[in-house]
Nucleic acid binder design. Structure first.
Lengths: 213, 213
DNA sequence: GTCTATATTGGGATAGAC
DNA sequence: GTCTATCCCAATATAGAC
């Protein structure tokens, strides 16, 4: 993984990556509107003009930052679900949810594990005019496949209702992403892994609710 | 309600309110960082300098905007829970959750109903350095009282675990606040009221999960 | 308490040399 | 493809008259 970065030996591509890395870190920490191109260029140790050369505008940089991370998550989620469907006749809700969460919280690359939740929760924090199209673009396929799988696992729940439950599930997921531990709780040894288990249990209960199996 | 606004007849207080109203609307629509004092002054039809006179700085205005709305919500939530506890021996989880949600989604004043969800989801969207202290300040008492009530309603669940479930519940609530309908869903006649019922059902299932009653 | 006018900063974007 | 220098604008904030 990440061989694409190492392989690029020309200076231009390296600069591009440095800018993306710096922008990503600053956006996670401060949000998009609060992050200036100047701050990004300084942290990346490149010239300010390079940001415009590579990405055209601040908006273009935003899109690139997000797309670089979201694309692999999308693929991993779809692949995990496909694997699940091939190996089992009847899927359990908790397994489907895990296939959805794991590429997000628990990437193979442990650096990514620190990055993804913070980054995605930022997208959702953007004004709907910005976040809606981006989420639609990056996630509509994933959402429809997972909602369908959940519907199949819970035959009693109509599709429209399952859409809503999926919606609430996303909210819980984001809450874990934003604040790793509950507000007002003193720091706890338990890792993100423990939060993930709790998230699966909580959302599975909400999704299965009222279904007769 | 809102007699405090009408009573203030001196011009200063009227200006203050106009600024707060305008700022609130713009923050809900665009977010805090994206809203300029100029835009606020223009919408409020007051002079730019008046914003500084009344609130000192942009940050000060932010705090005032939020506090004006959060204080009544806090009081309403605590009062609703107290009323519930006085009239029943054993509370149902769904009723406790309703006492928490209703002052938020379903205020008496129907204008407020449009304002509160959008505003509160904005607070959570702010960088943690800003949102954490504000949420702690405004909500810690409410959280501890509601978590305690939920714990009493579900004797099988340890307090630490209930903290987590409460945390996830907040996430679902915010998701409904941010996007009134699920992403990718075509507009639906159902009002916010319908979403509220679904929210109660979803979160109650997650909170009661594993409890033996 | 409200206004006009202005100081000052910071940020996005671009031109043009190398 | 990268740099320096600069343009231009928008924004926060303040000074001082009324």
């Amino acid at each position: 993984m990440n061989a694409d970065v190492a392989r690029e030996s020309n200076a231009g591509e390296q600069t591009r990556q440095k800018i993306l890395d710096a922008a990503e870190a600053l956006i996670i920490e401060h949000g998009f509107a609060e992050t200036s191109l100047r701050a990004i260029a300084e942290k990346a140790d490149v010239n300010l003009a390079a940001t415009h050369y590579h990405f055209g505008s601040k908006q273009g940089l935003l899109a690139a930052v997000f797309h670089r991370r979201l694309e692999p998550v999308k693929e991993a989620r779809l692949a995990a679900l496909t694997r699940l469907e091939q190996n089992n006749e009847h899927l359990k809700v908790a397994d489907i949810l895990r296939a959805f969460f794991v590429p997000f919280y628990d990437a193979d690359d442990s650096d990514l594990m620190d990055i993804l939740p913070g980054l995605i929760s930022r997208i959702y924090a953007e004004p709907p005019a910005i976040s809606r199209p981006m989420l639609q673009e990056e996630f509509s396929e994933v959402i429809s496949r997972f909602v369908a799988a959940l519907g199949k696992a819970c035959p009693g729940i109509p599709p429209n209702e399952m859409n809503w439950r999926f919606h609430f599930m996303i909210g819980s997921m984001l809450q874990l992403a934003r604040f790793q531990i509950p507000i007002g709780q003193t720091s706890e040894a338990g890792s993100l892994k423990e939060g993930l288990d709790r998230l699966v249990a909580f959302t599975a209960a909400g999704i299965e609710q009222g279904d007769s199996r």
